[in-house]
Each structure stands twice: as C-alpha cells, then as structure tokens.
Design a protein around this nucleic acid. Structure first.
Lengths: 336, 336
DNA sequence: TAAAATAACTTAAACGTTTACAGTGTTGTT
DNA sequence: AACAACACTGTAAACGTTTAAGTTATTTTA
C-alpha cells in the first residue's frame, strides 16, 4: 500500500518535484507541454496527491466537522445527508460525530475535531449551552450552529423561525375550532424549545386561550419520550381537544400511546407536530405539522461557514428561515 | 486562530521539543517530574496536538471512510450512527460520504477518501459492483463491505444471512397458511437481493409453492419505489394472499399504496418486510419482518477493518450473522 | 545590440510532529 | 576507583507537499 509521491514522479519525469507539484495543482508558471507530459505520467504511475501533506503546508484541511445529537431521528439524518452532499460539492468533506444527546460528549468531540484541524464546525447543539465552555471552543475554529440555541450569543447560526412556526400551528388549531390545546413535550434546556413554547403562549394570549403545557424533563425529543409522557397523560383525566407537539417524533410516540389507550386520532383528539420529517407523510402517520426547510438550512449553514472560514473577521450571521404549515389528516375541525 | 505548537511549549519550558513530544505522547523515556511539569504547561498554554502533523510522520490518520448509498433510509442511518460511535471509542473518526445510490459517485468518493489518506474504508455498496473498477481501489486501502454483494470476491465483508432470512420469512408465511406469496421488489443489480430472492425460491421449492416474483428495475429500495410498484400491482388482478418485500422501506411504500387502493393489511392481504428498521415497530406500521443485527454488524465491521489495518496480509474475513423473525401484526393466518 | 523583462524551471525552507541516534550525568557493580 | 549500565534529554532527519527566492535561457524593448 506504499503510495507513489511527487518525488517518484519527478524522478521518472526528470524534473524537480516542484515542477510536478505545479503541474498537478494547476499553477500557471509551467509550460503546457511539460504539464501534459507530467499529468500523463502521474496517471500512469497512479499518483494520488497526499492531502495530509498538503494540509500541513496550506494550513487548511478542507474538512468540516459535524456534531449531531443523533442520527436515528430522520430530521437529523436527512439534514446530515444534505449537509454532506452540499459540502462535498463545495470541496469539503465531513467528519461526523454523534453527541448522543450528551452535553459533555458534545464538548469532547468538539475538542477532538479541533485537534483534527477541521476548517470549521457545524453543530446541532443538544440544548442550551453554557456559553463559557462553548466559547472556548468556538474561539478556536469557525463554527455555525443549526439551532436557535445560540440566539443571544455572538455566534453564527441558521434556524427555522421556531417562534413563528408554533404561532402558525396554534392559529391553525384555533381556526379549526380548538379552544383547549395541549402543548406537549416542552423542554426547558433548549432555546429552540423555549421559542416554540413562547410562540404557542403568545398565540394563546392573542387568541384568548388558556395555555396548557405538558413539560418534558428529558433532554431529547424521541418517540420513546413521546410515548412515555403520553401514556401517562392519557391515563389521567384530560380535557384538551388537540395536542400540539414540540416535535414530530414526539407526536409519533403520542400516536402510539393513543393507539394503545384506544384513543383515535383525529376523531377523539387532534394531533400536530413540528419538523415535517419524511415519515410524517406516510398515510399511517399522516401528521399535520410545521415544515423546516432542511435543504435550505443545510446549504445556508455550509455557505455561512465557508464565508466565515474565508473571512474570520466578518460579523456573525444569523439566518432565520420561514416555517410552513403542512396540512394532513391528524387534525379535525371542532364544532363549538 | 493561530495555535500553539510543541515548539512554543518547549521554549517556555526550557526543554527541547522532543521532550515535550514525549511528555504528550506518553513515552516512557521521560522522568515523571518533567512530564507533569510539561503537561501542566501544555494545559495552561492551551496546546492541542496537531493530528495532521502526527499523521504525516506516523503514516496513519486514525480516520475511516464510510460510504453509504443514503442516510434517508433509517436502516442506513442507524447503522451509520452505530459505526461512528463504535469507531470513535476505538480511536477513529469517520469521514462519511453519501453515494446517493450512484455507482460512479461511489467510486469517485472512494478515490477521494484514499486521497484523504483514510486508514480504511467501510462501504455499503449500491449494488453488485464490477470487480475490476473496485479492486483497483480496495487494493489501495483496507476495506470492509457491509453487504453480501462482494460474496465471490476476495474482500472483507459482514452481512446478515440474507438467504436464510428469506427462507425464514417464507416458511413463516407458509406456516400461517399462505400458499400464494408474492416476492416483491427483487433487484437484479445486487447480490444481497439475489440471495434474498434465492432464499424465497428455495423455500418455495421445498414447500411445493409456485414462486410469484415482482421485479424492480430501480436501483434502490425506497418507500417511493415500493409505492410505485405496488400501486401498479394493486390496480391489476392479483391472487396472492401475502406480499413478502425485499426491504422494510418497500413494505412501507406498499402499505401506502394498499391504503389508497382500499386494501386492508392484514385483513385483505398479509405483508412482510426485511431489515427491521425502527419505524417498523410503530403501531401504525406494525410490520412483521426479519431483523438485521445492525449493532453487531457495525461493531464487527469496525473490528474486522481495524484487524485488517493492523495486519494487511491477513486473509479476508467473511462474517455472516443470523437473521431473526420479528413477529408483528401485518400478517394473518389463512384458513385453507 | 545591450539591457530589461519574461518564462520555465530548480533549490530549499517551511508546516508540526515522531523517533533513531547521540550525548550527558547518575547510579550500581566489582 | 573505574567502568558498565541506565535514565533522561537533546539533535536532527524524516514524512509529502507548497511556495518564495534564485537561476537560466529566451524574448522583448529601446
């Protein structure tokens, strides 16, 4: 597996290895004749540039780090796929790390990526980070967050407008006639979730509804968490006609619990999510939800990061993308 | 963002930078006193070893490449998560590339990863690869495939026993009384699929059933493909009492088509999948299927790859893991 | 036609580590 | 007391590139 280097090619070509380097890297200060000759030779000899050595001298690796809390959540894995494809098209590879919804691990892999000399980091934070521990890291490498968790920090981030999204959701349920809407699965360790909750609360206020909030003490919004919380909820008396979930995965868990409790959706109770993961479109799930423009979030995050790598002195950018209502059949109108 | 190097630490500590290197890398030939003193200084000065430079001289990067056809498929994304976590625990980071079910792109990113000097590659191939194009690449870097597509090639691979898995599935449906079983979504460009189909065919022969095979001309087994094929199937006369799908995602697409065609599962027709993706456990999907032991596949693939990196002369390893029936409620018994 | 500019190439230093080898001082052995 | 053995530390080369500076040959300019 010993690979052929510039020197090997240079020896055969009878030129200095600087010349080979110039031929390969497309420098202008070389004649077309020799370039062609050398490039042909490179191909014959099976020369592949060693990007490690190149990184060494160029002081950049063309590698981006990506930190995600999970890949089992389709929202995250679809976002990851979009990020990887777009970054690759822009000449960067992705080093992916799973933080497993663990704050400490998140910081640990961040350090690890810095040691790896990545040119930048894209992070979907687990929750609301204490700024001190994080800024020590973001100070070392250009970073873009996908989340509003960094809202009040001087950091780059892209996000959907979570606040507005939940307003849209609440208003939609109201327009169907729902007056008692349960906000399901509020996490207090995440700015994103805080904003979603605030969106709901503000709409309640505006529409004259009394807020009903079911909080979650878990640090992730998985199907299992939704199932657990909802099983408990359904086992006790409740008056709400609609459940507005903080995330689609929660709603899927709620659906499962509802099914087991003999509660039909949307006949007995309406259900809404947030994220619009691909599975929500299945006829068996058929979940009305709020769309996050994942593809646009991915491209924007990469663009923002590359801009910041090129110009580290630039001001931090915040990009808030518009959410959209995706109407399916998990909600039904109420006659009051 | 200029980082502090060995030299900087050495200057402050008043020692040669070889000594610092030894302190950091845990070499035995250094006194405990100086080690402690230097390590403390490193921490104070915020020294992070440059793994690029280390890779340069050590001739290994501790990076593994991973090539997956897609991350939108939960089977792949869960596998990816397991691979990443396990590899990281063994000291390796993962560079993930999406081949988007594209044969040419698959080879392209493989070359790219080789240029990146990854120590090894794990690949979930799109389908049955022509050996010539691939061996030129696998000859350059230790590689492990997760798939039986490489069965007759001298390559490392781990896989579930696809043949046996489909036998189990067919026998199960037979035991429920099904005598006309449609094998759905057979791909001819994949050894894995070929083995699954062969498993079905062998069971048919053994049980005295006439095989019914619906072939797919698509190179991926997605929900969309399942939906498209099934919509067509349901629109025409059919006599089968059970559909055995080549993959869970196909079955989910079939379910959607059945729903739209007014066909109830399992009342009107039984449905089975293969893979046991997490969504198949949802009560709304509730798909009887064959389990692939993803976690074990992930750890075995990493172990196999690291073994092969350490000992490149070792014989190629093939690991076939046992499948298991996961009984849910998408199949019902038939009275004949 | 001589000087200046340009083109094409070579030389050598640099990037930040690791490590073989050499050097120094201390301890142990006889 | 002399020498070997040992523990520690320093020196310098190496890894495979890029690129500034230097060299030579050729072309342009006045």
């Amino acid at each position: 597996m010993a690979s052929v280097t510039l020197k090997d090619v240079a020896k055969v070509a009878g030129v200095s290895y600087a010349t080979v380097s110039r031929a390969v890297s497309g420098s202008p200060e070389i004649s077309e004749d020799t370039r062609r000759r050398i490039l042909k030779l490179c191909k014959e000899m099976g020369y592949t540039p060693n990007s490690i050595a190149r990184s060494m001298v160029k002081r950049c690796t063309n590698i981006l780090g990506l930190i995600v809390p999970s890949l089992n959540n389709p929202f995250m894995s679809e976002l990851t796929a979009d990020l990887e494809i777009y970054a690759r098209n822009r000449g960067y590879n992705l080093m992916v790390c799973n933080s497993s919804y663990d704050h400490d691990l998140e910081l640990e892999v961040f350090s690890l990526l810095i040691g790896r000399q990545v040119d930048g980091v894209i992070m979907i934070p687990v929750g609301h980070e204490p700024y001190e521990s994080l800024s020590a890291l973001t100070g070392q490498v250009p970073t873009v967050f996908i989340s509003e968790n960094m809202q009040n920090y001087p950091e780059n981030y892209v996000s959907v407008d979570n606040y507005r999204g939940m307003q849209i959701a609440t208003e939609y349920l109201y327009s169907l006639g729902h007056r008692e809407i349960l906000y399901f699965g509020a996490r207090s360790d995440s700015k994103t979730h805080e904003l979603r909750l605030d969106g709901y609360l503000s709409s309640c206020k505006k529409l004259g509804l009394e807020p009903h909030v079911l909080r979650s003490s878990y640090s992730r919004s998985s199907r299992e968490v939704g199932y657990t919380l909802a099983s408990d909820y359904f086992s006790r008396p409740h008056s709400e006609t609609a459940i507005l979930c903080a995330a689609d995965m929660l709603a899927i868990g709620v659906k499962q619990a509802a099914y087991e409790a003999g509660i039909r959706i949307p006949k007995d109770i309406s259900l809404m999510g947030f994220d619009n993961i691909s599975f929500s479109a299945l006829p068996e799930i058929d979940l009305t939800t709020i769309n996050q423009p994942t593809q646009q979030m991915a491209t924007s995050a990469v663009d923002m990061l590359l801009d910041h790598i090129r110009n580290p002195e630039a001001a931090h950018g915040q990009l808030i993308l518009p959410p959209a209502l995706i109407e399916r059949r998990s909600c039904r109108p109420i006659k009051s």
